[in-house]
Amino acid sequence: MENVLRPLTVLGGSVLLTVALGWAVDLLLRRADARHPETPLWGLLRRCRLPLQVVLFTALLRGTYRVTRWRIIEDNRGGIGQALSLVLIGAGAWLVVRIVSAVVESTYARYASSTRDPARLRRVRTQVTLIMRIATAVVVVVAVAAILLTFPDLRSIGTSMLASAGIIGIVAGVAAQSTLGNLFAGFQIAFGDMVRIGDTVVVDGEWGVIEEVTLTFLAVRTWDERRITMPVSYFTSKPFENWSRGGAQMTGTVFLQLDHSAPVPLMREQLHRILLECAAWDGRDWSLAVTDTTPSTMEVRAVVTAKDADDIWTARCAVREQLLAWLTEHHPYALPKITTAPAEKIPPQGRLPSPAFEDDADHPRTGRG
């Protein structure tokens, strides 16, 4: 009977204690969240309940599994202890990642609630994302190293390899030169404020928005919903257009080729009426002027402003479409025309006519002059 009650006591006690501690911690975090609504930290920490319970349950079993005195446990004591240690290390890494994520997200949320500048928010968001990725990578590396150190054979192999670590590091550095370059470029982009998540950029002739930034690549979402994945080293070694740097507001132009008789003052008034009805126009500025002329047409430029790249595209399209429709309906003579004239008849046998002279005296052969 004792052989049955002892294992049940160990397992049942571990389960009850784990559930009780998890419930108590969750209750404390819930009360702290209710008392401090200005910060989401306590609410985010409640997501750590599951990994915390796994850590507690594994730790309790790791310390008490020998008390069960089961024959199967006594015969496999080393393997069971090793397995529980591996689970404990993995659960501990999971818990640390959740805690770091809660702290980082809480910090960003508090900063976002007190800052109204979209450019700063995008910059901090990019930095927070990369910091979270770096912290996760460090925790995973440390956890894997701790797991390997629990195996005596691997620990001895690792100790013997320390002597050649310098040579291995040099070889690895040469082999992973491009990867390391992208890694350092990722740090430069994150903390050098070159490009941020949400920025509107033009790279290799493609217009898009930065959708994701990692330590090795950036994902650009184009206007037609395509995704272009580019190494971060591209943005540190080649020029590119960042339309969001210094502010998201933009100025756009619309060029029209019209006849010289186009009513420019009336077009200027019509442009203003179009913009007053255009929701994409931000009201900052507008203008219309003749910027160039050719023997057959003149170039009219309309300037409009908008709050971001999407709205400037919409405003330009609306101005171009409605101005042309207005000219076609009310001033069709202003549209460009191609002037043509009837061709002269070619004389028989392809001979050109002799020049006509009004007076024989002016003829080069018979004339007297």
Rank of each mutant, 00 (worst) to 15 (best):
Q127L: 13
V128H: 06
T129Y: 04
L130G: 01
I131D: 08
I131N: 08
R133K: 13
R133D: 15
I134G: 06
A135C: 15
T136A: 14
T136P: 11
T136E: 12
A137I: 15
V139T: 12
V139F: 11
V140R: 08
V140D: 10
V141M: 09
V141D: 06
V141N: 11
V142C: 15
V142Q: 08
V144L: 10
A145G: 10
A146I: 14
I147G: 01
T150N: 10
D153E: 10
R155K: 12
S156A: 09
S156N: 07
I157S: 12
T159R: 12
S160D: 02
M161G: 07
L162G: 02
A163I: 06
S164W: 05
S164Y: 04
G166E: 01
I167K: 02
G169C: 04
I170V: 01
A172F: 01
A172M: 03
G173L: 02
A175S: 02
Q177L: 07
Q177I: 13
S178A: 00
S178G: 01
T179P: 03
L180W: 02
G181H: 08
L183G: 04
F184P: 10
F184Q: 02
A185Y: 07
A185E: 02
A185I: 00
G186A: 12
Q188F: 02
Q188C: 08
A190N: 03
F191E: 06
M194W: 05
I197N: 09
G198Q: 02
D199H: 00
V201H: 01
G205N: 06
G208F: 09
G208Y: 02
V209R: 06
V209N: 12
V209Y: 03
E211K: 11
E212D: 14
E212I: 15
E212N: 14
V213H: 00
V213S: 02
T214K: 11
L218P: 06
L218S: 11
A219M: 08
A219G: 10
T222V: 03
E225K: 13
E225D: 15
I228F: 05
P231N: 07
Y234M: 14
S237W: 11
S237F: 13
K238I: 10
P239E: 05
F240C: 11
F240Q: 09
E241D: 03
N242Y: 03
N242G: 09
N242R: 02
N242Q: 03
W243Q: 10
R245P: 11
R245G: 05
G246D: 05
G246W: 00
Q249E: 13
T251L: 08
T251I: 09
L256I: 08
L256K: 03
Q257E: 15
S261W: 01
S261V: 13
S261I: 13
S261R: 14
P263V: 04
V264T: 06
P265I: 09
R268M: 13
R268G: 06
E269P: 12
E269H: 14
Q270K: 05
Q270E: 15
Q270A: 11
